[in-house]
Measured scan of single mutants.
Amino acid sequence: MTEYKLVVVGAGGVGKSALTIQLIQNHFVDEYDPTIEDSYRKQVVIDGETCLLDILDTAGQEEYSAMRDQYMRTGEGFLCVFAINNTKSFEDIHHYREQIKRVKDSEDVPMVLVGNKCDLPSRTVDTKQAQDLARSYGIPFIETSAKTRQGVDDAFYTLVREIRKHKEKMSKDGKKKKKKSKTKCVIM
């Protein structure tokens, strides 16, 4: 069974824990209790493949930012979460993405942009803004509501699919490099 290491990042209060708990335990946590770091595991079937999701729910508070490099190193894919009623959390996505790329030393890291709290009427981040940002990053965008469960499975499952595509691409690139290195030079 394939294991996928997913990391949920975003500013404090955007609903990272609520999304994760909704996926794992099928219930909505409405009281806000700032996370330092929590880890969850769940076995699911995605596109006919049974897999184990190892999900790291991270601290959004700035005082825990020193811990970010460590979990970013171990993560295979990242859910970059903002709240649709919090423009600052949307603007912060850029910083999370840049930090992930720096730590992973790669421009090509599996990510999904997630606009959470889409059940709320007080939207300050337009869907088109988020779609445009995701398009500019070359990553999928999904709106979710941890409260109603809308888009929750889709967000995590899409990230797994992005990781699969990335692994497939990397193995193809690896095979191309191996083929090239088999060419021999004969000096007579």
Rank of each mutant, 00 (worst) to 15 (best):
I36V: 10
K172F: 10
M188P: 15
L133K: 06
K165M: 11
T58A: 09
S122D: 13
E63H: 06
I187M: 15
R41V: 06
V81K: 00
P34N: 13
V9M: 08
Q99F: 14
K184D: 15
P110S: 02
T58V: 12
D173V: 06
K88M: 13
Q129A: 13
M170S: 05
T183Q: 13
G60C: 07
A11L: 13
V109K: 01
G174F: 01
D108V: 05
E31I: 10
V14K: 02
K117T: 06
Y157S: 15
K177L: 15
V45L: 08
D38P: 00
L159E: 00
K101P: 03
V186G: 15
D47K: 03
G10H: 00
V186M: 05
Y64K: 13
Y32R: 10
G151K: 08
T183K: 11
Q131P: 02
C51V: 11
Y40V: 10
E3P: 14
L133A: 10
A18M: 06
K104Y: 13
T35K: 06
R68D: 14
T148N: 14
C185K: 15
K128I: 11
L159N: 00
D119P: 01
D153P: 08
V7G: 03
L159P: 00
V44N: 03
D57T: 11
S145Q: 14
T20L: 10
Q150K: 15
R161V: 03
E107V: 13
H95Y: 14
T127Q: 11
T20V: 06
D69F: 00
V8T: 01
I139A: 07
Y137E: 10
E37S: 06
A83S: 11
N26M: 05
G151W: 11
C51F: 12
I46K: 08
D47N: 07
E31Q: 06
K16T: 14
N26E: 06
R73Y: 05
N26W: 02
G115A: 13
K176Q: 14
M188L: 11
R41W: 05
T183I: 02
R149H: 14
V152E: 03
T50W: 04
V103T: 02
T58S: 10
V9I: 10
Y71C: 06
V29Y: 07
A59W: 04
E76I: 15
F78H: 00
V81A: 04
H166R: 13
L79V: 09
D154Q: 13
L113N: 00
R41T: 09
I100D: 00
V114D: 00
T2P: 05
I139C: 08
T2N: 12
L120E: 14
K128W: 10
N26V: 02
A66L: 07
T148Y: 14
L52E: 13
T124N: 13
D30K: 09
T183F: 01
G15Q: 00
Q70M: 03
T50L: 03
R161E: 10
Q150T: 14
V7A: 06
I84T: 15
R68W: 11
E76D: 15
I46H: 06
L133C: 08
K178V: 08
E49T: 11
V152Q: 04
K165V: 04
I163T: 09
Q70C: 05
M170N: 04
C185E: 15
V81Y: 00
L23N: 15
V103W: 14
D57W: 09
A146L: 07
R123E: 14
I187P: 15
L159A: 06
T124Y: 10
G60Y: 04
V8F: 02
K178C: 12
D38C: 11
S181R: 04
A59P: 12
A18K: 09
E31H: 10
M67L: 10
L120S: 11
H95N: 07
Y96V: 12
C51S: 07
R123P: 13
L113A: 02
L19G: 06
S89L: 06
D54K: 15
F82M: 14
V81C: 09
I84V: 14
M170F: 07
R68N: 15
H27A: 11
G60E: 12
K104F: 05
S65N: 14
K169Q: 07
T87S: 12
R73C: 09
T20H: 09
V45Q: 04
N116S: 13
S122A: 10
Y96M: 15
I142A: 01
D126S: 11
L53D: 02
S106Q: 07
L19C: 07
